[in-house]
Design a protein around this nucleic acid. Structure first.
Lengths: 213, 213
DNA sequence: GTCTATACCTCGATAGAC
DNA sequence: GTCTATCGAGGTATAGAC
């Protein structure tokens, strides 16, 4: 029996890559937890390394610099959120889009690190030369695009009234999400993001929903 | 002609205090501008000193440490905001309270540093041992108290429906304010906080306002 | 792939002269 | 009231051994 050429080397590479990937994933997780409470600026890669069980240089073997670590963290967050929201299929449209926001908030209420991460990083990233600045702008733009499309589709199917002020509702909805997260990070036990958001969404529906449907 | 005892000394003290106060005020202004773009953690007192026209030690003569500088900045912001909102008289109640929020946002739209300052600091301050943590908690609590009282009073006078979900509306309104500020700091030219907030407030009124009045 | 050692920087705060 | 000088801590990143 013979192996295809290069098999041994391939196998070896895969094994080591896998070991490396475990350390990498562990580091990303540690970074998420640290960034979520201390933000990016104030967090040190040494502390991330410590929580990962590596030395600082050991960590920097997996990420060339601090910025690369941040990038990996943001990619992970973006990936998990969009998988939850859109899964395999198409993005929900009409009021269903707003319902899925509620579902996302419900899920994230059980993952405080994720809310903290977003609140801290997106505030820091308003600075033009922050390494997450472009990510933040992209995140807002794509969210606005999706919600705009959702409302337009709702108008088309008739479940949303045609004279709805689309842009304002899109921005206000995002604002409520962000603002509730901010309050929740400050005092998690004093409120339910889901309950508050539901009131807002009911209000939206009663103001702009088609009463015929 | 004789002077009251200690007059000369008093006069001297006032003169020097005044000179000191000018440097102090200038430093606070410089700190506001720097903190509003870089946040507190990332800003250095050396940079504040530079913009003030002092050396680092010169600045630290007026503020014992960096925290004291932050405190002075926050006191200034709180003072100006509450003077604008409440002035000499009593706090506005009922729907008038929400109108005055709109007026505040309109004014602050012309002072980007103030919005930036709040967005950056309040996000950083969600960390429990951040020097502005208590300030942030107090700020939210007192805002909630005022708005809660405003709605209760509106119910009493009949301009607000009695079955309004008070807590949720208070928190959502604060969330919209904070969230719009966040978006505006990220991209000031892409939106009008006043226009978006007005849509939200109209929605509130149409959902919970008494149609009889 | 992980480590130790280290270069180099920035920061907050203090000491002490003027 | 403001300055220069300096200390000590903590940060990112690199060099090089294993």
């Amino acid at each position: 029996m013979s192996y295809p050429p290069g098999y041994r080397i391939e196998r070896e590479r895969n094994r080591t890559e896998k070991a490396g990937d475990i350390a990498r994933a562990k580091a990303i997780q540690a970074a998420i937890e640290l960034f979520s409470t201390s933000g990016y600026n104030k967090s040190s890669i040494a502390e991330v390394a410590l929580r990962t069980g590596l030395s600082q240089s050991g960590l920097l073997h997996h990420f060339p610099n601090k910025t690369a670590l941040l990038t990996a963290v943001l990619e992970q967050r973006e990936k998990e959120d969009s998988e939850f929201l859109f899964g395999e299929g198409a993005a929900p449209l009409g009021w269903a889009a707003f319902d899925s926001l509620l579902a996302l908030v419900a899920r994230n209420s059980t993952r405080p690190e994720w809310i903290g991460l977003f609140v801290r990083i997106s505030a820091e990233a308003t600075e033009a030369n922050h390494p997450a600045n472009q990510w933040m702008l992209d995140h807002y733009r794509s969210t606005r695009q999706w919600l705009t499309q959702a409302i337009e589709d709702g108008k088309r199917t008739g479940e949303i009234l045609p004279d709805v002020p689309v842009d304002a509702i899109v921005r206000n909805t995002i604002a409520v999400l962000d603002g509730l997260q901010q309050q929740w990070v400050a005092e998690p036990d004093s409120m339910s993001m889901v309950a508050e958001l539901r009131v807002y969404l009911d209000q939206l529906r009663s103001a702009w929903g088609n009463p015929q449907q």
